[in-house]
Simulated scan of single mutants.
Amino acid sequence: MSKVSRRELIGICAGAFGLVIAVALTVKGGIDPTWPFGLWLGALCLAIAVEDVRHLRVADSANGLLFVGGCAWRILQSPAAGYEALVLALLASLVCGGALLALRALHARISGRIGLGFGDVKFCAAAATWTGLAGFPFMLLLASLTALIVVGLMSVSRFGWNMQRRLPFAAFLALALLMLWLAVSPLAGSLVDGLLQHP
């Protein structure tokens, strides 16, 4: 077993264990799922971002964990209608992932080069289980704007930016997903209420 595959296996085990803990705390412990799932999603998004920045890739295992975690989150948010929530999550993943795949093919046909990696497409398909159809465009917009700002700042800095350089877009997608999920999750509402009650 190579060093890379061993590291990835450790990541899979850690991610799966963390997800099991988050589900167990919610189902058996009666804890609000926002906190354990928020911590788990934050850790996974950080790992995905670091991997993409360092190696310009997103592991299928990380996207798989993100997908399973999103489906679990949706079901636990609506336990009385778990089947419907799962169907909606799967539908969002299929539609959003298919749209990004079509965009990738269209861009490649027009420009003659690949502008979006398969890892990014798979990430978007998995992330859609968290954002739903309504939130997905906002995630893309936030990631795109953040990437443009970073590239713009680097272009005018002493580091510069080579237009042929590949952009670790999944890192921006991961950041956007986490920010969007935190903004619309019950955690945000509880924090706002706490601030209003304690000026």
Rank of each mutant, 00 (worst) to 15 (best):
W130T: 03
I114L: 13
V156F: 08
C71W: 01
G152D: 09
W40C: 04
L142E: 03
Q77L: 10
A49W: 08
L101C: 11
S155W: 11
A62P: 00
A72K: 00
R57A: 03
G70W: 00
V151Y: 10
T146G: 12
G69W: 04
L148S: 07
G132A: 03
A85T: 08
V68A: 06
M154T: 07
G42Y: 02
G135D: 04
G64M: 02
I48A: 06
A49Q: 10
L100H: 12
F138G: 00
T129S: 12
L41I: 11
L44F: 11
A43R: 07
A126F: 02
L56N: 11
D60H: 09
A126Y: 07
L44N: 04
I75L: 12
T129D: 05
A81H: 13
W130P: 01
G42Q: 00
W73E: 00
R109N: 14
V150L: 08
V50C: 06
L56T: 05
L46S: 12
L106G: 10
Q77I: 00
S78V: 02
A143S: 00
E84W: 06
A99V: 15
M139T: 15
G70V: 04
V150A: 14
L116K: 04
L65S: 03
C96R: 02
D120I: 09
R109C: 13
R57W: 10
D52I: 04
